[in-house]
Amino acid sequence: MPPLHEGQRVAVLADSQNLYHSSHSLYSRNIDYETLLDTVVADRELVRAIAYVIRADSPNEEEFFEAIEEIGFEPKIKDIKTFADGSKKADWDVGISLDAVTLGDHVDVVALCSGDGDFSRLCSHLRHQGVRVEVFSFGNSAADELLDAADSFVDMSEEKERFLL
């Protein structure tokens, strides 16, 4: 795998639901998306930053969508689905995976901001294609299989005051 260096082309894919639930269950705080993006990109070339979000008719969510866009993320929004039994579901796993594979042909690095173990196979695929995979998440809620499949892992818990509002 290529080493970390200036000039690498980076795609940042933020699984906002995973980050939200992790930061709230561990610290009852929100993610600082501006710091996250700046940290991930560092001195490299940002090709694309996408934040995958769910519209759940929560207070202030439209303000959040606008704020992440101002920071530099392209918000991809999916409506939550409510089923007849009252259960709700919304996730972006397939969308994130498809975007990562597509972007993999155009970048040196895919930075996956999620701790979801479902992405371990995606990481293995991208690495096989010669793309460096960096995972940014909270260690206490990140799946071991995801961390094992990535080239590097930044444990946001180690610098929680930096990554949380």
Rank of each mutant, 00 (worst) to 15 (best):
P3L: 14
L4P: 00
Q8Y: 03
V10Q: 03
V10I: 14
V10D: 00
V10C: 02
V10K: 02
V12L: 03
L13T: 05
D15R: 09
S16R: 02
Q17I: 01
Q17N: 09
N18Y: 05
Y20D: 08
Y20H: 11
S22W: 02
S23V: 02
H24F: 13
S25V: 11
L26D: 00
Y27M: 09
S28R: 15
S28A: 12
R29F: 03
N30K: 13
I31L: 13
D32P: 01
E34F: 10
T35H: 14
D38K: 15
V40E: 01
V41W: 08
D43W: 04
Y52I: 11
Y52C: 06
I54K: 13
R55K: 14
P59Q: 13
N60S: 13
N60C: 09
E63A: 15
I68P: 06
F73E: 03
E74T: 15
K76R: 15
K78Y: 04
D79L: 06
I80G: 04
K81W: 01
T82K: 09
F83K: 02
A84N: 12
D85T: 08
D85R: 03
D85A: 00
S87T: 15
D91C: 07
W92T: 05
D93K: 11
V94M: 12
V94E: 04
V94P: 00
G95Y: 07
I96P: 03
L98N: 09
L98Y: 11
T102Y: 15
L103A: 11
G104R: 09
G104M: 10
D105R: 13
V107I: 11
V109G: 06
V110C: 08
V110M: 09
A111V: 10
L112V: 08
C113N: 10
C113W: 07
F119T: 04
S120V: 03
S120W: 08
H125F: 13
Q129V: 07
G130V: 02
V133R: 07
V135I: 12
F136E: 02
S137Y: 02
G139H: 05
G139E: 04
N140Q: 14
N140V: 02
S141Y: 07
A143Y: 04
D144S: 15
L146A: 09
L147I: 15
D148I: 03
A149S: 14
A150E: 05
D151N: 14
S152G: 12
F153W: 10
V154G: 02
M156T: 05
S157W: 05
S157A: 10
E158L: 13
E159G: 12
R162C: 00
R162N: 06
L164V: 01
L165A: 14
L165H: 13
